[in-house]
Amino acid sequence: MSDPIIKFDKVVKRFGNFTVLNELDFEVGTGEKVTIIGPSGSGKSTVLRILMTLENINEGVVYVGGEPLWHERKNGALIPASEAHLRKMREQLGMVFQQFNLFPHMTVRRNLTEAPVRVLGLSKSEARNRADELLEMVGLTDQADKFPNQLSGGQQQRVGIARALAMRPKVMLFDEPTSALDPELVGEVLNVIRRLATEHDLTMLLVTHEMQFARQVSDRVCFFDKGRIVEQGVPDQLFTNPREERTREFLKAVLESEA
């Protein structure tokens, strides 16, 4: 593997007395597409939220692009990161939320231009061009002037993907992007993600319960349970021939619930 763009080094995350991540070691290579699967409550979202700087860590170090994310180097030692450091690090990451979290009072286009103008300093017309290109990519050119609640869930999530991409992140984080959608709307969102995965050199970290999809797009699948990686490997191996009993049970349960 090339130099990892993401690296968790013995990361501990607790909520009160409850330890969600216990000395987690985890790496993602540059350009790699990694899927995290696992039962609910196993800490999958927490991994993404730590990377998006929405959740701090208790111990260990997280590296993004070789730089510590939640720490700063000072006189050779690591000290807790300042907001300025977090802002700089955040530029490399984009996130797509399960509940979309679009800004309901902004038009679709404004959802896509607000941060590029305000944060990246693009001119209004540059941001607009970028937004329109992205809307075309996700197939929503004709919805630019609508408000999010005038769109279907699938369309809203495609806006969510475009909004994150408008910041040109190096790493895209997807937290169960289709779990809040009606079944008939899942496909259109997965198609957009699939195209991203195959046509771009973005690094992607995806949490999903869509096993078929995970198998098609990922370079590697990680099975999480109780805040640990129980097993990981290339999708064909992990899905057809899992080594761990726990993985087998989980895959069996998922397949049965889908049938």
Binding site: L54, R90, E91, G94, M95, F103, R118, V119, A164
Partner: peptide, 19 residues
């Protein structure tokens, strides 16, 4: 979720509050 989306997009806290 609104605050988190704003943070993920790196909007400043002032901009998040006002807009």
């Amino acid at each position: 979720g609104q605050r988190e989306a704003a943070r993920a997009l790196n909007l400043s806290s002032v901009r998040t509050f006002t807009h």
